Structures are given as structure tokens and as C-alpha cells.
Amino acid sequence: MRELSVEVLEDAIKELVMVANYNAPEDVKRAFDLALEKEESEVGKKILLEFKENHKLASEEKLGICQDTGLAVIFLFLGQDVHLVGGDIYEAINRGVEKGYTEGYLRKSTCDPLTRKNLGTNTPAIVHIKFIPGDKVKVVVMPKGGGAENMSALRMFPPSAGLEGAMDFVVETVRKAGPNPCPPTIVGVGIGGNFERVAFLAKRALLRPIGSKNTDERLAHIEEELLERINKLGIGPMGLGGRITSLAVHVELEPCHIASFPVAVNIECNAHRHKSIEL
């Protein structure tokens, strides 16, 4: 059994929060280059170039890619042979988040949902823990902005809706979102599970690198068809028209109850901030 201090976890999250907000991920940069080759709208091309310049300046100046620096979504892949010592895991995560947002001069966005009073800490973080074999700990920080999250949706379909109904729902969700999630977007889709699980599947689907192919051939085909349909909507970069409304569609699927057919759509903005480390 390997011991790891929660202080190490806290420090790692503090750094990841800042790095994720300052630096566009490599898969996003590659996706923008490909999008520029495909985009036919002159306005759309100009917007994509402005985004690329924004990525460059944010990284150089250590500034947030977007002023909405998001709620901190943390995925913790915890090796079953690791014993975290020295305190409460959740408290350590939240201390790391607060330090990262404070020391990194990043906007804090958590508030009381009723009074709307800002809590001033950007905590509590949204934490997902999965136990994995081995003695390593992988931490993924995904700051998730409000504009894109607000456009996400979940539907508990009857089984009779079938795949066609699910796909129509995904495309309609993106259509209704329009310019609000700052396209070009990345679309995470969850199918199956139950009410709370399907939302998690849609969120987790966003972790897969843009440009990677789904290992399930059925889902790979669905992703391709959904992306084609979405990019025919004509919404385009920042909703000003064009071919590239979304950079990718990622689908995750799990078994569900025989009487249910849950489908969730989690829309991600063009910044698609995420950063990971293995401890």
C-alpha cells in the first residue's frame, strides 16, 4: 500500500486550476486548425483566428482564456493501492481549488442559488471519484463555464423513441443553444444508466481527446452522423453563421432499465479547458 499526502493532491489541483484556465489544450488547438481548413464563411474564419490569437495571449500573459473561469469539475482516478493520508480528501480538493482561483487571479463564480451571493471561493468543487487498479492517482481538472452548461439538457425517453429519437434530441439541443455556448462547441452525449448517471456519462464523454475515434464502432458511427447533422445547422463560430458549429461529438453508453431510455447532452464551449496529472 502506497501512502500519499492529501497536501500533494491539494498542491496539484491548485496548479492544474491555473494551467487549465491559461492554456488551450493541444487537442483543441489541433481542432481549430482543422476547423479553419473546413470553414467556408469568411466571418467564421475570422472568428476562429481570433480564438487562436486569444489562446496565444492567454498563455503568454497568464490570463484566463475566458472571463468565465468556470466551476471546477474534478475527476479523481484513485488507485486502489493508494492510501491518501493527512486529512479529508474533499477538503484538500476544495483548498486546492480556492488557492488556484485566488493565486491565479481567476474569477470566482460559485454563489448561493437563492440569494445569489458570491461565496468568494469557487468551491465546493464538483468531484467525481473512480477507483482504478494500481498505486497511482490521476487528477483531471475541467473548469466548466456557465454559458455552455446552461444549454445542456437531459430527457428520460420511453424506449420506443429509439436511436432516431435520441439523435434528434441531441441535434435539437444544439440548435436551441444557438450562439449561447460560444461555438464551435464540443458535445458530450450520454445514453443509458439512469437519471443521474446519464448526465455524468455526458460530462465524462468530454474528457476524450478531440479527434480520437470511439472504440465502439456503433458509437463512432453515431458520433460521425451527429457531427455532420450539427454542422449543417449553419450556426457557425459564435453563432454568426458557418459550417463549423461543433468541433466534435463524443458519446458514452451504458445499460439502462428496460422501461427507460435516458439521454443527456452536455455542451462544452470552444475553450474546452482541461488539464490532468498523474501523482
Rank of each mutant, 00 (worst) to 15 (best):
residue 64 G to I: 03
residue 117 K to C: 06
residue 145 G to L: 02
residue 72 A to M: 10
residue 102 T to Q: 11
residue 34 L to P: 00
residue 109 S to R: 11
residue 135 D to V: 02
residue 135 D to N: 15
residue 61 E to M: 15
residue 8 V to H: 06
residue 12 A to L: 09
residue 48 L to Y: 09
residue 73 V to S: 10
residue 133 P to Q: 05
residue 95 R to E: 00
residue 60 E to P: 03
residue 145 G to E: 05
residue 97 V to A: 04
residue 55 H to Q: 11
residue 59 S to V: 07
residue 102 T to A: 11
residue 128 H to D: 15
residue 37 E to F: 01
residue 93 I to E: 00
residue 21 N to F: 05
residue 54 N to W: 03
residue 16 L to A: 07
residue 82 V to K: 04
residue 51 F to Y: 15
residue 125 A to S: 11
residue 103 E to G: 08
residue 121 T to H: 06
residue 76 L to W: 03
residue 87 G to N: 04
residue 70 G to I: 03
residue 23 N to G: 02
residue 140 V to D: 01
residue 126 I to S: 10
residue 35 A to W: 00
residue 6 V to N: 03
residue 125 A to D: 00
residue 98 E to I: 00
residue 27 D to N: 05
residue 137 V to T: 03
residue 112 D to T: 00
residue 82 V to D: 00
residue 35 A to S: 09
residue 136 K to W: 06
residue 142 M to K: 15
residue 23 N to C: 13
residue 41 S to C: 07
residue 145 G to R: 07
residue 88 D to M: 01
residue 7 E to L: 12
residue 139 V to D: 00
residue 49 L to N: 12
residue 131 F to W: 11
residue 21 N to M: 09
residue 111 C to M: 15
residue 117 K to A: 12
residue 28 V to M: 04
residue 30 R to A: 10
residue 63 L to R: 15
residue 50 E to V: 04
residue 87 G to Y: 02
residue 3 E to G: 00
residue 30 R to D: 05
residue 21 N to V: 03
residue 19 V to F: 13
residue 76 L to E: 08
residue 48 L to T: 11
residue 54 N to P: 11
residue 134 G to D: 02
residue 54 N to I: 01
residue 76 L to F: 10
residue 127 V to A: 08
residue 59 S to F: 03
residue 140 V to G: 02
residue 88 D to N: 14
residue 128 H to R: 12
residue 115 T to S: 14
residue 14 K to A: 14
residue 130 K to E: 15
residue 96 G to H: 00
residue 110 T to H: 09
residue 25 P to W: 02
residue 99 K to F: 08
residue 45 K to A: 01
residue 53 E to T: 10
residue 124 P to W: 08
residue 142 M to V: 12
residue 19 V to Y: 13
residue 26 E to M: 09
residue 42 E to V: 07
residue 142 M to I: 10
residue 141 V to A: 08
residue 42 E to F: 10
residue 133 P to S: 08
residue 102 T to K: 14
residue 17 V to R: 10
residue 68 D to P: 01
residue 124 P to S: 10
residue 19 V to N: 13
residue 92 A to N: 04
residue 28 V to N: 02
residue 38 K to V: 09
residue 51 F to D: 14
residue 109 S to F: 13
residue 33 D to T: 05
residue 104 G to S: 07
residue 65 I to E: 07
residue 88 D to W: 03
residue 24 A to V: 05
residue 52 K to F: 01
residue 77 F to D: 15
residue 12 A to K: 10
residue 111 C to D: 06
residue 145 G to K: 09
residue 6 V to H: 01
residue 46 K to N: 13
residue 65 I to T: 12
residue 77 F to T: 08
residue 3 E to K: 13
residue 37 E to L: 14
residue 117 K to Q: 12
residue 145 G to H: 04
residue 117 K to Y: 06
residue 144 K to E: 04
residue 80 Q to I: 15
residue 83 H to V: 13
residue 127 V to N: 05
residue 124 P to R: 08
residue 28 V to C: 02
residue 73 V to C: 12
residue 117 K to L: 12
residue 116 R to H: 14
residue 113 P to K: 04
residue 17 V to D: 07
residue 50 E to Q: 15
residue 95 R to F: 00
residue 96 G to F: 01
residue 106 L to K: 10
residue 114 L to D: 11
residue 79 G to H: 07
residue 114 L to V: 13
